[in-house]
Simulated scan of single mutants.
Amino acid sequence: MFRFSEGKKSALGCFLLFQLSSLFFFTPLYSQNHSSKTITPNSETSEELILVTEVSSGKPKFEKAYGASEFLKREYSPASTFKTYLVLSLLENNVIDPEEKIECADKHIPNSPRPLDLRDALFYSSNDYFEKVFPKLGKDKLDITLHKIGYLENSKSNIKVKDWWIDLAGLKHGGRIRLTPKSVHSSWSKIFENGYGLNKGIMEEWKKALFWSECPEQSANVYGKTGSWEGSFWFQGALVKSENDYVIYTILNRSKSGSRTGTIIRFYEIVGCKVPSLE
């Protein structure tokens, strides 16, 4: 049996205390071959929730939630993440040319007014773009898409597809729709596992519109969508190495000091990729 002097006991106690305290300050967000990095909790806010789904070929799906667990029990506006599914409906109904540039004058977009194509409109979350193209689609066709993909199936507030509409301006946040973070995350995850059963052509166009940046640091591509409404700042991201090797993230920040740009930067910090130009 090993015996320790009082001095050694004291040193051992300090070491164990440090090891224990490190559990509270260093949270491994993921442990897969995309990055060996661990991240620390956001020291600036406790009002952040991060949902993660990891898919790696030959391994079980990994799903985890980190941060403000109380947010999981509540429903929030999906904000502009809703535009992700508006775009799907536009593509399915073949009412736009994704490459066509439309002059848009959103105040939040740098160098506005400026011409935007579909990918630009999602990247900058243009409200003007979608208000201009929506009349070619119409609510009825959009409702068919939302119903088909089960977008409101898990809504605790029991909003029906036919009842979400407020007005044209409501397109930027999904009108009356309120969803839990898990529901918002699930809808996003299904895109990358083709959980909607869409044909290859539509999926390719959809992902092309959702593309954000290359990430040579992780040998991957980043796809994403922002959302800001009613005090919620969302970033939904996907770090994709291959069809069967990717990690999906949903970040919800409800801090009073939160921002669209800050949430974007937070995602890129987590995945270990360089932030693309937001101009």
Rank of each mutant, 00 (worst) to 15 (best):
H108C: 09
K107A: 11
D117P: 08
C104T: 15
I109Y: 02
K107V: 12
I109T: 14
E153W: 04
D117E: 00
I149M: 00
P110C: 13
S112W: 05
K107I: 14
I144L: 03
K141A: 13
G150I: 06
L116H: 09
K132A: 10
L122N: 10
L122G: 02
A105H: 08
S126Y: 07
E100R: 13
G138M: 03
Y124D: 02
R114A: 01
L142C: 03
E153M: 00
P135L: 09
D143C: 01
A121D: 05
R114I: 14
D140V: 09
F134C: 01
F130D: 13
I144T: 14
K132I: 12
N111T: 15
K132V: 09
K139N: 02
D143A: 04
A121L: 07
V133Q: 00
E103Q: 14
P110R: 09
S125I: 12
I109P: 03
S125H: 12
N111Y: 15
C104P: 08
I149Y: 00
R114T: 14
K136Q: 05
D120M: 06
P98D: 06
L146P: 06
K132W: 02
V133S: 07
D140Q: 07
D140S: 13
A105E: 10
D120F: 02
L118S: 03
K141D: 04
R114V: 12
L152C: 03
L152R: 12
E103I: 15
A121V: 12
E100A: 11
D140E: 14
F130E: 09
K101F: 00
I102E: 00
K107R: 15
E100L: 08
D106S: 12
I102L: 10
L116P: 07
K139Q: 02
L142H: 05
L152V: 10
L118Y: 11
P110F: 12
T145R: 00
V133T: 15
K141V: 06
K101W: 03
P113I: 12
P110M: 12
E153I: 08
V133L: 02
Y124M: 04
F134I: 04
H147Q: 15
P113M: 11
I149C: 02
K136V: 00
K139T: 10
K101G: 04
D120Y: 09
H108R: 12
N127Q: 05
L146M: 08
H147S: 07
S112V: 09
K107H: 15
D120S: 10
R119Q: 10
S126E: 13
L118R: 11
P115H: 06
D106A: 11
E103D: 11
L152E: 11
P110H: 13
D140I: 07
K107C: 01
R119T: 04
F130P: 07
G138Q: 10
P135Y: 03
S125L: 10
E100H: 10
H147R: 12
